[in-house]
Write a protein that binds this DNA or RNA. Structure first.
Length: 331
DNA sequence: CGAATTTGACCCGCGC
DNA sequence: GCGCGGGTCAAATTCG
């Protein structure tokens, strides 16, 4: 029942979370397909008539050298990213094993009926998946809809997310990318940790609420219960869109990040930057500034790793998926 | 100074 | 009907 092999866990990670950055080992290659070296030399000749004096062989040689250098650099970067990914998978495996222990320990307690309010427990019962996946969603059954139809309209979608935080982090903040406004906090009977109540900052137009409370068993795990669905775009998507727009103005590197029910998807298409710069002028500027491109890539990677939304979304997705998988294995 | 957070009071459903 | 407990409100407070 338990799957402990590393390779299996790796398969999970690959199937759950699309960690592919769509990196092209040789981005110039695609560019070369579109714009042959000679053609670009010709373009350079158009831009600089004196350049023709140097002869085609020299320019091709320089171009080849630059390409090799670029290739080496991108390969090294790709290697670095691969190493980072493997480290992340190792961390994930460690986290997963921890979670397996944790879940097996309190499995009975989770399944035993708690002294919760009827409405909440019924909602949880409706949630056939027990909301173990990161951003799981559930719809209500027909039996109870007639009884509390109005309430069900409001609480049509209830999902639960488990987010592991630092043990010394006392804040009940689950950075899921959305903006929330805290409107209350209570100490509940069945959990000594306070429960925080949040409304979407787009309220009242957006009716989504969430409750965040630390897990009884593991204080470092935050349990976020979401009620309702956002009726507006994910702020990180808007952010990514604007970021991509900004990057387009400087480097034309499309970049998008999204967190959906199927997990986070980060698309960093470095190949398109070359293709979109197919005209002569940008081709010239691109050849002149490989450092600028490297800086841009590094900046984008840095902004991604530093972005709390990204890391939180990643953490939420990983923990949620782990729980989902654990739940699947139990059934 | 406006926005966000805190926190005690209040509301309401449920069980006895 | 009453008490309990979860959820919400809103005034006070804090923060940027």
């Amino acid at each position: 029942m338990k799957t402990t092999s590393t390779s299996a866990a790796m398969d999970y990670s690959s199937s759950w979370v699309d960690t592919s950055l769509d990196l092209n080992i040789n981005p110039r290659r695609s560019n070369d397909d579109d714009v042959p070296v000679q053609a670009r030399v010709g373009l350079a000749k158009e831009g600089q008539s004196n350049f023709m004096e140097l002869g085609r062989k020299v320019s091709v040689k320089d171009e080849t050298g630059a390409l090799v250098e670029e290739l080496n650099r991108v390969s090294a970067e790709n290697k670095k990213l691969t190493e980072m990914l493997s480290v992340m998978c190792e961390n994930y495996n460690a986290l997963r094993s921890q979670l397996m222990d944790f879940m097996s320990k309190n499995q009975d307690k989770e399944l035993s009926p708690s002294r919760k309010r009827k409405s909440e427990s019924s909602n949880n019962n409706n949630d056939n998946t027990i909301a173990m996946n990161g951003i799981s969603e559930s719809s209500s059954t027909d039996e109870e809809s007639c009884k509390k139809s109005r309430e069900e309209v409001i609480k049509a979608k209830i999902s639960r997310a488990y987010v592991r935080t630092e043990a010394n982090d006392t804040s009940l903040v689950v950075k899921d990318g959305y903006q929330w406004r805290k409107y209350g906090q209570k100490v509940t009977r069945d959990n000594p940790s306070p429960r925080a109540y949040f409304k979407c900052s787009f309220a009242p137009s957006c009716p989504v609420k969430k409750k965040v409370q630390r897990s009884i068993e593991d204080q470092s795990v935050l349990v976020a219960t979401y009620e309702g669905e956002h009726n507006h775009p994910h702020p990180s998507q808007m952010e990514a869109t604007s970021a991509a727009t900004r990057s387009l103005t400087i480097g034309s590197v499309p970049c998008s990040a999204s967190l959906g029910s199927s997990g986070p998807t980060i698309t960093l298409d470095l190949t398109k930057s070359s293709k979109s710069n197919n005209d002569a002028r940008s081709s010239k500027s691109r050849m002149e500034a490989p450092e600028a491109r490297q800086f841009l890539v590094e900046q984008m990677a840095s902004s991604l790793t530093k972005d709390p939304n990204f890391t939180a979304a990643l953490a939420a997705a990983i923990s949620g998926r782990m729980l989902q998988q654990n739940n699947t294995e139990k059934w």
